[in-house]
């Protein structure tokens, strides 16, 4: 059983975003790159699946510049993935091109029993690649998963949609599951795990072998802007009762939001 976990490297959530001189992109200098937090739930779920199904082979797969993303794969393997595929690309790929690269690489490996991904990556947050990959591989997907129950080839998946409604879906393998926070508690890589990871294989595939190029990306971003600075905060003095009264007056008369 071949299990794939799609991961992406993103700037750490503590990152203060700065823009490049021409505001055409963000300034990547000094950024600490981490595995997308939602992808950590995907990795954990794949490893748990392997613990329950020892014959499963868990492969972490990512798209990005080799010099940088290699680390993310090492972390995934230190957590317990068996091996990795690195689709080396220094170009900016849109969601469609990224999904096509992943789909082609997974097909080259003979397809998947299960694919895990994060529900979105916290950089672009488009929520595009998971469903696109499932569509390209002609398999069903369930996104925003917070609970998975396995019973042979049948999976029961719970997810929360708007307004706190819980939906339960039934799906058969092969399938793609996009993980939400709450699905599990991602483990930390242990020291022996980190040592072992260094010996695990990373297969490198150039995007050109997968028929994918940045030139085919239909979606791109430009004219980046930082949020406008706010005027200084107006502090409200007095005791609690006076503060509450004055706040409501300001919200009504000055800000006009009540």
């Amino acid at each position: 059983m071949r299990i794939f976990v799609c991961i992406k490297q993103v700037p750490d959530t503590e990152t203060r975003i700065k823009l490049s001189a021409d505001a055409g992109k963000i300034d990547e200098a000094g950024i600490k790159w981490v595995i997308n937090p939602y992808d950590e739930f995907a990795i954990e779920e794949a490893i748990k699946f392997k613990e329950a199904n020892p014959s499963a082979q868990v492969t972490a797969i990512t798209v990005g510049p080799k010099a940088r993303v290699n680390n993310a794969l090492l972390t995934a393997m230190a957590m317990g993935a068996d091996d990795s595929i690195l689709i080396d690309s220094t170009e900016s790929l849109d969601g469609v091109q990224t999904a096509k690269a992943l789909a082609a690489a997974i097909q080259k490996e003979g397809g998947a029993h299960l694919i895990y991904a994060g529900k979105l990556s916290i950089d672009g947050s488009t929520s595009a690649v998971g469903p696109m990959l499932a569509e390209l591989l002609k398999i069903p997907h369930v996104s925003v998963a917070t609970e998975i129950t396995y019973s042979g080839s049948a999976l029961t998946i719970k997810r929360e949609v708007e307004g706190g409604t819980m939906e339960t879906y039934k799906v058969n393998t092969p399938a793609l599951i996009a993980a939400n926070k709450g699905l599990n508690k991602p483990r930390f890589a242990s020291l022996p795990g980190i040592m072992k990871a260094k010996k695990k294989p990373i297969k490198e595939i150039p995007t050109s072998d997968l028929g994918v190029t940045g030139a085919n990306s239909a979606v791109s971003f430009s004219q980046f802007e930082l949020p406008k600075e706010r005027a200084a905060c107006k502090m409200i003095a007095g005791d609690a009762k006076a503060q509450a009264k004055e706040l409501v007056r300001l919200l009504r008369e000055e800000a006009k939001v009540l």
Binding site: P11, T15, R16, I17, L19, I26, I122, D123, G124, S125, A218, V219, S220, F221, S222, Q223, F224, E225, L226, P227
Partner: peptide
């Protein structure tokens, strides 16, 4: 336009003509 990095900045969205 849309937020990027969960609102730490925003960007213009460009889509190729004819797509």
């Amino acid at each position: 336009r849309r937020p990027m990095y969960a609102g730490k900045c925003t960007a213009a969205v460009n889509i190729k003509d004819g797509v």
